[in-house]
Design a binder for these strands. Sequence first.
DNA 1: GAGGTAACTTACCCTGAGGTCATATCACAG
DNA 2: CTGTGATATGACCTCAGGGTAAGTTACCTC
Lengths: 201, 201
Amino acid sequence: MRVASVAFGTDGFAATGVADVAHAAGISKALVYSYFGSKEGLHAACLAEAGGLLAAEIERVARDGSAGVERGVRTLAAMFAVLDDRRHVWRLLRDRTAPADGPAAEVVAQYTARIEALARDGVLELLGDAGTTDELDVSAMVRTWLGIVDSLMDWWVAHPDQGAEEMTQRVARLIAALVSDQTRRRGPAPGDATPAPTPQR
Amino acid sequence: MRVASVAFGTDGFAATGVADVAHAAGISKALVYSYFGSKEGLHAACLAEAGGLLAAEIERVARDGSAGVERGVRTLAAMFAVLDDRRHVWRLLRDRTAPADGPAAEVVAQYTARIEALARDGVLELLGDAGTTDELDVSAMVRTWLGIVDSLMDWWVAHPDQGAEEMTQRVARLIAALVSDQTRRRGPAPGDATPAPTPQR
DNA sequence: GAGGTAACTTACCCTGAGGTCATATCACAG
DNA sequence: CTGTGATATGACCTCAGGGTAAGTTACCTC
């Protein structure tokens, strides 16, 4: 049910009432239960649809052979294109208020694992090319990448007038600004990871 | 109450029960209410402490005159140092399950506004130096920056053995890898925001 | 039109969590 | 020893929200 996806994606699983979803869909609560069995069943149905969509799209980009930051940008572009009229979908899979066990959790765990594996591939390429192989670095970078996607999707939801193509170009601009800043201040040969001095408390 | 901060920061406001907090603190639920009046009051007390700590620290870094990505890294370093033994605190202020109105929301809105204003300053510097002045770009970059902090704090919470200093160096390494990737693939003079071709659905 | 069935709703139950109150314990002044 | 106030608690109240069962409508077949 489309309206349930929007509700779960907007408010989170825990904050969404079955009665609200039913009302928004124009039917009664009991009918929802006759269709999906339980709130979790409804959630699982939404998740399966969302997860399949996203994982398939990310896998498609992974096959096209790009690497590093470029691959990240292309993945984002593909997701913007696919999710243009379903922007809430990304948050569905990254909902911390969803129960950690049960059948719906299995579904989301499966798709999340696929998406994370693909992100990991991309990060491994990126860091490997830069000479970093530390497993914890990879893990932190994957988490950060997913967080960046989270943020951009949130911002996109909050700015409905922005189209997919505009978002893609915006991301490219922002990355260019970051790199420009780093090359200008550090000189054109980065790679020496000089940490900033850590201030004391 | 320290234990309440941990609970709210770990599970979120909505998923945290007053009875659980009281039990974890070794006192009764009624006593919590006699201290704080309500669940929101308890929340507000935690938020005020957390917000003051974070805003003060970020403001301190803002005054030291660094700019661009360097300022971001220094801010992160300062937060890692301050939050080393209270890693849950960041999530307190960024809790989507907290009620959007009420006295506690006022508190969090106030501190969030301060932190966001400082992030905005940093982003304005960064983008301004790179020649980007679009207001929406700034807004999206601020959101993304906060998302990066979210991610790193989450990862940190999940890796208790990692100290503040290690985190700071890790962040520096990851940024170096990103920049290295971009300069290697695009040549040493970036800034042209060539968007990746947007795939069709 | 009678009967049966699928779709659907109303009205209800029940658990869990926020919140309250009468009571109990204790330190201490007189 | 006894009265009093601060501190603290178990038992209770209330209500939102997930879940269910009985009843109602609509349609289809004979």
